[in-house]
Design a protein around this nucleic acid. Structure first.
Lengths: 267, 267
DNA sequence: CGCAAGTTTGATGGTGCTCAACCATAGTGG
DNA sequence: CCACTATGGTTGAGCACCATCAAACTTGCG
């Protein structure tokens, strides 16, 4: 069974897991997953070494377990909105998340995609600066920022790990700003596909037939182009043999070096 | 006297301060300022509450003082380059810094400007992801990242403060990505000028006749346009009465709301 | 089968880039 | 004191790239 009773199913039990409605602000769509199942350090997820709590002292992991909360969302569900008071950070257990900002006239810029093992929703004081929305069915591990802060008094490694994640994200932003500010349409699309491929490789997944979790519109709103330009560019790449598109949502990269050349204009 | 013997002066004593050549990698241009003069918590700068060490426990401040180092640069000096191993973070005491990435064919994207009180050069493991260059004569407080990390074992507030700075920077990046990905030339320039004005206001400086520390080329490379477009846009704003340009390096904003309307297309 | 959503393709036009010249200011040396 | 130069900023003409508008195609689903 996939889901027989549509919206209602999301609020009570489904897929054999005990779930309850979540009470936190903005989380009306979330289902809380109370089942323990996973090889992760805290037993609540199967992220293994990708888990936020991986490698922490037993005591620290226990503290995190107590405040941790695994949530599930459907595609297109909103996790939180720009302007909501930021109270928690999220770790993606499975699925994909997009994070975006809107302009008054509806223009949208996606500022990040997050996949298995990624952390998002950094906020210390103040509100979320962006909206987070599930791209696919999604499972996330939520950690209240306040408790993380308290915990870091006694366990500085917690804060240090957040620092590491944020540093990585900052470096990513520098690259993305370069892409948006100075790259051509071809270079943007090539860079985007390469980044997905690189990421897959780093995670041990095959680097070449990569699945595209997001649609063309989302890609466009991420690389600062229109759907049409993204589509045209990808078919152009296909014509030129730079990529193959077995299906609209799968991209094969026969020659990484060639695509890399296309990604910075050295082609 | 301003400076009589040009380049040589930079390497020995100048302006009445005892200076020596700095030995750290990439810092061949820096002069180390060994004079104590300032109202800051550690006595090495006059940043006051803007100082990184402001509000820390006496013991923590002392630790920071011992590893701290105040450096001076001339405009166009390079502090560090993309690819250099990242060993320290910097706090701007006076002057302005730009941080940028280059593409193989010379295209440049400035990813940030930093002014009095700003912190840059975050790096944990690995290399700097960008080049940092002085825009004006510059004075910075350098803190070795390694010691900050060690210090945070006993003083978690150190790491927490870095976290705060990084969170702010992340939020800025979200805004800037929106600007680069989705805004028109007019909106970009308006947003840039408003951000400078806002910043001045927050720091207690007058919000309206704001000095432009950087040239048109730098502005263009920051907002993802060409010099010509930036120049044209600014004179257009002047024609329309949105701004005034008493000199090329000073912008007056008669009506903030009007400029704000121009910054997000609600005009 | 018909509909909806997503993707692709086509025709056309506008925004901002390119190339080029001109102007303003400050510094330099005769 | 005044060319002379260098640097940075402004202005103009033409064009390219990508956005816009429009329509056809594909796929999945009721």
């Amino acid at each position: 069974m996939t889901r027989s009773s549509a919206t209602a199913a999301r609020l009570d039990s489904a897929s054999g897991l005990v779930t309850t409605r979540e009470r936190w602000p903005g989380d009306t769509l979330a289902r809380v997953d109370q089942a323990d199942r996973g090889n992760g350090p805290c037993g609540h997820c199967d992220l293994g070494t990708l888990a936020f709590c991986d490698g922490f002292a037993r005591r620290t992991v226990t503290s995190l377990m107590r405040v941790q909360c695994t949530l599930r969302f459907e595609a297109h569900d909103t996790l939180f909105r720009e302007g909501d008071t930021g109270v928690a950070v999220f770790n993606v257990v499975s699925g994909a998340v997009k994070v975006y900002k809107l302009m008054p006239d509806g223009r949208r810029q996606i500022t990040g995609f997050f996949f298995r093992g990624d952390m998002f929703g950094f906020c210390l004081d103040g509100d979320y600066a962006y909206t987070a929305e599930a791209v696919t069915p999604l499972s996330v591990c939520r950690l209240p920022m306040q408790r993380l802060h308290e915990l870091s008094e006694t366990a500085p490694e917690v804060q240090h790990r957040i620092l590491l994640r944020m540093t990585a994200k900052l470096a990513q932003f520098h690259d993305h700003v370069l892409l948006l500010g100075r790259k051509t349409a071809r270079e943007r699309v090539a860079t985007f596909l390469l980044a997905l491929s690189e990421r897959a490789r780093r995670r041990g997944d095959p680097a070449s037939p990569i699945p595209l979790a997001m649609g063309r519109v989302d890609i466009a709103d991420y690389v600062g182009l229109t759907v049409e330009t993204v589509s045209r560019t990808m078919t152009a790449f296909k014509r030129e043999g730079l990529i193959d598109l077995p299906s609209p949502n799968h991209v094969a990269i026969p020659d990484t070096q060639a695509l890399r050349a296309a990604s910075d204009g050295s082609a």
